[in-house]
Design a protein around this nucleic acid. Sequence first.
DNA 1: TATATAATTTAGCCATGCCTAAATTAGTTT
DNA 2: AAACTAATTTAGGCATGGCTAAATTATATA
Lengths: 223, 223
Amino acid sequence: MLTHAAEDYLKSIYKLQEKGGKVSTGILAEYLDVKPASATGMVKKLKTMKLVRYERYRGVTLTDAGKAIALEIIRHHRLLELYLFTALGVPWDGVHDEAEKLEHVISEDVEARMDEFLGYPTADPHGAPIPDKNGVVTRTASIPMTDLQDGQSCVVAEVSDNDSALLRHIGSFNLYPGTAFSVIEVAPFEGPFTIDIAGQQVVIGREVAKQIFVDKVQDPDNV
Amino acid sequence: MLTHAAEDYLKSIYKLQEKGGKVSTGILAEYLDVKPASATGMVKKLKTMKLVRYERYRGVTLTDAGKAIALEIIRHHRLLELYLFTALGVPWDGVHDEAEKLEHVISEDVEARMDEFLGYPTADPHGAPIPDKNGVVTRTASIPMTDLQDGQSCVVAEVSDNDSALLRHIGSFNLYPGTAFSVIEVAPFEGPFTIDIAGQQVVIGREVAKQIFVDKVQDPDNV
DNA sequence: TATATAATTTAGCCATGCCTAAATTAGTTT
DNA sequence: AAACTAATTTAGGCATGGCTAAATTATATA
């Protein structure tokens, strides 16, 4: 069995691989809030276990075995988030930290029971996809809210889950995944977004908008 | 915050204190499946934290602070057992090992939510009492099944939870806490017990009976 | 009371996973 | 191409919590 630390490293490498391309030990260290030297050390250990590819100064890549473990942990995490949210009513800005601790400890049996209870869901409370038992991720191609133009209608698809204060803020506008809204005006010079949610007019700062991903709704008039 | 290991030691000292009187480092080591030298080392560390009293060769005792932590962990453990059993249908011979891992990791918030969901219960699936948030344990004075005589009627109060094979065995006879039965015959010379459960006649070995605790039911004829 | 036996403690070692500080390598600039 | 800067790696240290082996203390026995 792997240590919790090793699992966290694999999960982080996977997530960083998704976002950008190359994953350096430095980026990894920053993401994990650890000194670069520590990341280098662990990456070497993961290499001996054949869970990552790594040449010094060249960055890290997951092997198939490493990716499988990363996806398993991510599945644990997201199922736990949804379970805590749905079954126990933990607020959505609290589920991440809680799941972060539980994900390394929950058994496959309990996970399967939560999965069944939830009706085999495909997304967590922040809209992130839940990999299935075989590690298959079905991701819908959402776009960042910052790409939207005036007048565009859309639905919230996903929101970054690692900043609890940000989640409370976003939640206060009801911008949960599945919520529809339309852009009234995008202020020029990297300014804020004024949007309409269920008739309410709300101003969303640029930095916040960067953390929100949406699916465009085709304007019926333009079909 | 304490380490998981330290929490396990405190919990074990508490349980051993309950059963017998003096808790030696040797007994503690055996209970935790660790070498005696390791137990001595941890006990010394716990002493510097003022969580135990300890003089070399004299055994260990919990301080009030140590006892409070032990009870908190035990509360986590038993609430988790009952939650897993009730909400997720984990079989009663599986909940112990699962709770053993989760008890160190669950937040007070999630615990409070499980407690509420369960209706503020006072016993886990094995009949062990669940301490309240203030660490108050309300224990009913049950007797070992081995103390029973021919013809005695009683109700299962509690069953040891740490041997999963034993629990499956006991479960196969339906000897769950709350189940009533009467003793048909106790075989002489430390022999097995023949009992009647809901009309079924069942033979229970001495070693198994030692792990079962019961409340006597007053025979109406003898009142 | 002296001694044998059993329990306990001490001393010293190992792996994990973090750290700091120093050395090295890569990449960029002149 | 040389040199400077920034990233990365190496070297060595620390705390945790196990372990073994040797020394010590307690206890029971002769």
